[in-house]
């Protein structure tokens, strides 16, 4: 089973160890997502010299710096815009965006829907911890109803985004979701996302113990992660677009697995073919 055969994968080969200890709080799920991402990159055999990580602002954005690759820590909400330019100018690079629920769905929401629409070959890993952690715990577009944050001190009353439904509706070629505790499954999902030619959107349900969990009495990290695991554990398997999808126990929880996979034309290749046609027509 390749889910547990991590024999040749040594995460240290992919990290800038000189930057450790890292800045993430104890119990934060982002480190697990980072591990799954690097594991997927290892399995795909991507040379880290050819790997470009573009990340935004927030706890999610800061994780990029720990990766021993070409890393670009850009402005709040705009990593997809930077990545679009980078991937169009340098189709030889493997471009992966690391973003968060605030970075990607609030300030960067317009860039997300247009990246989905264009379907340029990029992978976007959105770490969803339901909160703005770095700025001290304000509500985000994915903060669940009734949750306490520093800007919803009587409990949130705003509806949340289903990021995967949004990405799929906007045309992303590949859409998936996973929890951090299912690390091998997350690794496989990211591997398939990166291998997909087109825009791939992966939502990782992470946990923010320190800023969000404590305020909402969700326990320490193990409790938070186990709750995620138990509520996300499949009650049954469903099939979406030929892919097996985990149906959660509760109707209020989210499906995990590959939710969308289409063969829509990849924008970069389409652009290059179109431009080559223009040049050929001028020569003749």
């Amino acid at each position: 089973m390749d889910e547990i055969s991590a024999d040749s994968f040594n995460i240290r080969d992919y990290l800038r160890l000189e930057l450790f200890p890292h800045f993430l709080c104890p119990g934060c799920g982002h480190g697990i997502a980072l591990r799954a991402l690097l594991w997927a990159i290892h399995e795909l055999g991507i040379d880290k010299n050819d790997l470009a990580i573009v990340s935004g602002i927030g706890c999610s954005g800061r994780t990029g710096a720990y990766i021993d690759a070409n890393t670009f820590h850009v402005t709040h909400g705009r990593p997809l815009a930077f990545a679009t330019g980078l991937a169009l100018a340098r189709p030889d690079l493997e471009v992966v965006v690391i973003t968060g629920d605030g970075d990607c769905l609030a300030i960067g929401g317009n860039h997300l829907i247009h990246a989905c629409r264009r379907n340029l070959n990029l992978t976007c890993m959105m770490l969803n911890n339901e909160v703005y952690g770095m700025t001290g715990g304000q509500a985000s577009p994915t903060t669940s109803a009734t949750r306490y944050t520093t800007t919803t001190q009587s409990g949130s009353i705003e509806p949340v985004f289903d990021a995967c439904a949004l990405a799929a509706a906007a045309g992303a070629g590949f859409v998936g979701r996973e929890v951090t505790i299912q690390t091998p499954a997350l690794k496989n999902l990211l591997r398939d996302a990166i291998a997909h030619k087109g825009f791939s959107f992966v939502e990782v349900l992470s946990d923010c113990t320190e800023i969000f969990g404590r305020k909402n009495d969700l326990g320490e990290s193990p409790e938070m992660i186990m709750t995620q695991k138990s509520t996300m554990r499949p009650a049954s398997y469903g099939v979406v677009g030929g892919n097996i999808v985990d149906e959660p126990f509760r109707a209020t929880n989210l499906k995990t697995g590959i939710l969308t996979r289409t063969d829509r034309p990849e924008y970069g290749a389409a652009y290059r073919a179109h431009a080559a046609g223009i040049r050929a027509a001028r020569k003749s």
Binding site: R78, A81, T84, G85, L86, R90, H111
Partner: peptide, 22 residues
């Protein structure tokens, strides 16, 4: 490459990304 972006902010973001790529 010519790309019409979704807004003004993204336009310069894409330009910076392309320039980072060389």
């Amino acid at each position: 490459v010519f790309v019409q972006m979704e807004d003004e902010i993204a336009s310069l973001g894409a330009v910076l990304g392309a320039s980072m790529g060389g």
